[in-house]
């Protein structure tokens, strides 16, 4: 168990950061990442992982996508964000509010990109991963990842702040 706790401590911040900038909700992000660790432990995947970082990112990304899919439509997702905004009144609001504003700021820009390009940008800029690492997480050729990133950057050059 000690080994597993060390394993959690090694990756938890990076994964919560990643999930938060996907969802814009700190509590949901933590919940999803916790469930990823629980799954890894209960299914006994943990000792067998060769490349844990990539596996964890992939699982977290998929869990975030599943969560968002469950919101069914963009409209409902917006209502979800609005409701979360209101709920944050109940929590220690200031930090949450700053984080939420930062999420909204970045997400508003990424919304202008096709999702497959936005995904690469998230991994590269928000999670600060190399193209090689993104290749392993997404299971696509490095050339595809690089070109998606390049298309995204070209498109964002015309974006006005």
């Amino acid at each position: 168990m000690t080994e597993f706790l060390l394993f959690i401590n090694k990756y938890r911040d990076r994964l919560v950061h990643h999930a938060f900038y996907r969802l814009g909700d700190f509590e949901e992000a933590e919940d999803i990442v916790q469930d990823v660790f629980v799954k890894i432990y209960t299914q006994n995947i943990f000792p067998k992982l060769e490349s844990p970082e990539h596996y964890l990112y992939r699982m977290t990304t998929n869990a975030c996508l599943d969560f968002m899919r469950k919101q069914k439509s963009k409209l409902q997702m917006q209502q979800y964000f609005d409701a979360k905004n209101e709920n944050s009144l109940e929590n220690d609001a200031v930090r949450n509010l700053n984080m939420k504003e930062e999420f909204m700021r970045i997400n508003n820009i990424l919304k202008t990109l096709p999702e497959e390009q936005a995904e690469v940008v998230r991994f590269r800029i928000i999670d600060e991963l190399s193209f090689k690492e993104i290749t392993k997480i997404l299971g696509k050729p490095e050339s595809t990842i690089k070109s998606r990133f390049q298309y995204a950057i070209n498109k964002l050059k015309s974006y006005e702040l």
Partner: peptide, 21 residues
Amino acid sequence: IIETLKPKIKVKASNNFTNNI
């Protein structure tokens, strides 16, 4: 572009994170 998209707030897991797991 890189500077704009780089989060100004680094999100970290809370103190309860491991306990919750």
